[in-house]
Simulated assay, not measured.
Amino acid sequence: MNITSIHHIAIICSDYTTSKDFYTNILGLKIIQEVYRTERDSYKLDLSLNGVYVIELFSFPNPPKRASRPEAQGLRHLAFEVEDIEETHGYLQDKKIFTEAIRIDEFTGKNFFFIEDPDKLPIEFYEK
Rank of each mutant, 00 (worst) to 15 (best):
I3F: 10
T4D: 02
T4A: 01
H8T: 10
A10D: 08
I12D: 00
I12T: 15
C13R: 00
C13H: 02
D15H: 09
T17R: 04
T18N: 02
T18M: 03
S19A: 12
F22G: 02
F22V: 05
Y23Q: 12
T24I: 08
N25A: 06
N25C: 03
G28K: 14
I31P: 00
Q33I: 06
R37S: 04
E39K: 09
R40W: 14
S42R: 01
S42Q: 04
S42T: 10
Y43G: 00
K44N: 13
L45G: 00
D46R: 06
L47W: 08
L47H: 04
L47V: 11
N50E: 09
N50S: 10
V52R: 10
V52Y: 03
E56V: 05
E56L: 06
P61N: 13
N62I: 04
P64H: 12
R66W: 00
R66V: 07
S68V: 13
Q73S: 07
H77S: 05
H77K: 01
E81S: 13
E81D: 12
E81R: 15
E83T: 14
E86A: 12
T88K: 08
H89E: 04
H89W: 15
H89P: 03
G90L: 11
L92D: 06
L92F: 10
Q93G: 03
D94W: 15
D94T: 15
D94P: 06
K95I: 05
K95F: 10
K96R: 14
K96W: 13
K96I: 13
K96F: 14
I97G: 03
F98R: 14
T99Q: 03
A101M: 05
I102R: 05
R103S: 09
R103N: 12
I104D: 00
I104K: 05
F107W: 13
G109Q: 10
K110M: 12
K110C: 08
N111V: 02
F113T: 07
F114K: 05
I115N: 00
I115E: 00
D117C: 03
K120I: 09
I123M: 04
I123G: 01
F125A: 05
Y126D: 08
E127D: 01
E127Y: 05
E127C: 02
